[in-house]
Design a protein around this nucleic acid. Structure first.
Lengths: 98, 98
DNA sequence: TTTATATTTCTAGAAAACTAGAAATATAAA
DNA sequence: TTTATATTTCTAGTTTTCTAGAAATATAAA
């Protein structure tokens, strides 16, 4: 993963509402959660929440899938794992062993 | 780790210059690197770099230690590991197994 | 004790992000 | 085909962040 890709993902995780959205989605599993469910949990105005979800989606951390009137948000585990790997690659070379 | 603590750390990692600083420090090990060395590597004006380092320091990802005229910047591995754990806790409960 | 080196703090303009109300769109139900 | 539900897009004011030059501070060397 390149530094620009990683830093933009971290940037979007660097907001309490967005990080909350993301952890809720990650915990929800591959089925995801409807936007409305996130809204209930987080008590944020619709337009604000929508804006935050769009940012998470724009960097590939979340995908959206429509089922009728309901839009499901789904965490992208592959991206998350790549991000974890990025931190761990940097982390655990010689540095931690010293 | 609480969500506010985690999100502020991610926020500071969410800038290409700062993420570069941090990965350089992580790779450098517990001895850290002088500010001047980071400046040489990254070719960013002193005041700009200083500002970015201050932000990383403010959230506890970096510590600074002076040796004469030289200020060493040192990655805080404990904090980094806590951050990785935060992502992994959220990640690998039931979600990934499904 | 003057000069050089290393780095920060001050400052302020420019750019970006945050927020939420109002209007619009998409879909389904009546 | 009118109405209700789910969600987004538009908009604009407010706040925050970014950037880098100039001045200041800390320390060491001459």
């Amino acid at each position: 993963m390149q530094i620009l890709h990683a830093s933009s993902a971290f940037k979007e995780l660097g907001h309490p509402t967005r990080l909350s959205v993301f952890t809720l989605l990650v915990k929800a599993g591959h089925g995801g959660l409807p936007v409305g469910r996130l809204q209930e949990s987080l008590q944020v105005p619709h337009s604000t929440l929508s804006h935050h979800i769009a940012k998470l989606t724009s960097v590939g951390l979340v995908k959206q899938e429509r089922d009728g009137r309901v839009l499901y948000c789904i965490a992208q585990y592959t991206h998350l794992n790549a991000l974890i790997d990025f931190l761990q690659d940097e982390c655990c070379s010689d540095a931690v062993v010293e």
